[in-house]
Amino acid sequence: MADVAEKAGVSRALVSIVFRNQPGAGQETRDRVLRVAEEIGYRPDNAARLLARGRSRTLGVLFTVHQPFQADLVEGIYPEAERYGYEVLLSATAPGRDEGQAVEALLAHRCEALILLGPLSDPDRLDALGRRAVAVSVGRRVRDASLDSVYSADNKGVRQAMDHLAELGHRSITHVDGGRDPGSAERRRAYRAAMRRHGLETEARVIPGSHTEDAGIEAGRLLLAERDAGTPLPTAILASNDRCAMGLLMAFARAGVDVPGEVSVVGYDDSHLSHLMPVALTTVRQDAVLMAEQAVRFAVDRLDDATIGVREAVIDPKLVVRDTSGPPAFR
């Protein structure tokens, strides 16, 4: 500001008034100060100004780089944070960089609240984090912890997918689960419950997996090897998420298996990935924008009032029927 003041021929205090848009400077002076600032490349350090007031007005977001649905959530967080006057700072987990490191980086940058996308940490660690800072878990319900949660009603989403497959006539329906990934336990339970409800308990099968393409490819290879050994393929597969479904589609395409002619495949998330596949994926849509908006509101509300009790927002999912599901072939 001293450089701007010297070149514009005004006091530093007057430069401060102009950049804070406060009364006390004429329009001609304002224009001259702003023109000089532009010429020398000066920008007000809003972060420093906020920190001087004891605020950063920054929301930290923990995410995983290779999860497309989390990218959709991040995309929804930005406009809602901006609407409340907050900046967003991202910190990713990666090989060699666990959630603890990613979270500590956000806190070190003085983020006022944390939005955790699909956190994998155990409940005790998340509870401890919620006591240290304002935090919101997205995509995972964390029971008895000191942080708010925003998640999808996975039981309803799986029920819609399973009802769709049963109504098409499928009886041999396999589930490739998500292992320890967020939402997997709920989806696994909902799958087993739906098979019982449709009288298909004896047909139920869960193949261990994860929320990755590799898990889908491995499950596809397993089923193809069993087919080659004399065990028929299931007529339908419910994948743990869209990435897993994409892996299944890749494995089947390489083996010449027709989807949905021989096997129907249903994903979960309706991430942008599901629209990029050669065959449009039938999947369960989680409303990323609504979940993101709710997470930001929870964080901002708690920053404004620390006495608010722990809250949960459960968002209803919706089945989106596309090209990878159809009636079973006659055998």
Rank of each mutant, 00 (worst) to 15 (best):
D228I: 01
T93P: 02
G169I: 01
D301W: 12
V310D: 08
D154N: 15
A255D: 07
A133Y: 09
A245K: 05
R180H: 08
R32T: 05
E186R: 08
R110E: 06
R243D: 08
L290W: 02
D316T: 11
V266F: 05
V18I: 03
E213N: 03
A295W: 12
T64S: 06
T231F: 03
D98Y: 04
A108G: 00
S146C: 10
F330Q: 10
F63R: 05
R189K: 12
R227K: 13
A133L: 08
A13N: 06
P260V: 00
N21D: 11
A193M: 14
G230N: 07
V257R: 12
G100E: 15
I40L: 10
A5R: 08
V142D: 09
D258I: 05
S172V: 06
L90E: 03
R43A: 08
S121M: 15
L273K: 04
P68R: 02
A306L: 06
S149N: 15
R35D: 14
V289W: 06
S91Y: 01
V142S: 09
V279Y: 04
Q286R: 06
H175R: 01
I315R: 02
V74Y: 01
A288G: 04
R322M: 03
D323Q: 10
L281S: 07
R12Y: 13
P23W: 12
R285N: 04
E112C: 06
P278T: 13
L273F: 11
V136A: 00
E213F: 14
H170V: 01
D163I: 06
S152H: 01
S274G: 01
E186L: 15
D72G: 13
V36M: 13
A292C: 10
R302L: 03
H175S: 01
K318W: 11
A105D: 02
A92Q: 04
D258E: 10
E201P: 12
A113Y: 05
P232H: 00
E38M: 09
D269W: 10
P208S: 02
N46C: 04
V296H: 04
N155S: 14
Q101L: 14
R221H: 00
D305Y: 04
H170R: 02
E75H: 12
F252H: 13
I115V: 14
I207V: 13
V310W: 11
S16P: 00
F63H: 04
A105M: 08
V61A: 02
D214S: 15
E99A: 10
A105N: 03
Q27F: 07
R49G: 00
P278L: 08
V259Q: 14
S146E: 15
A236W: 11
Q22F: 10
A94H: 12
I308D: 00
G100D: 15
D258S: 14
K7C: 02
P44E: 15
V259T: 15
S146I: 00
Q286Y: 06
P328Y: 05
A215I: 07
Y78W: 14
D242A: 10
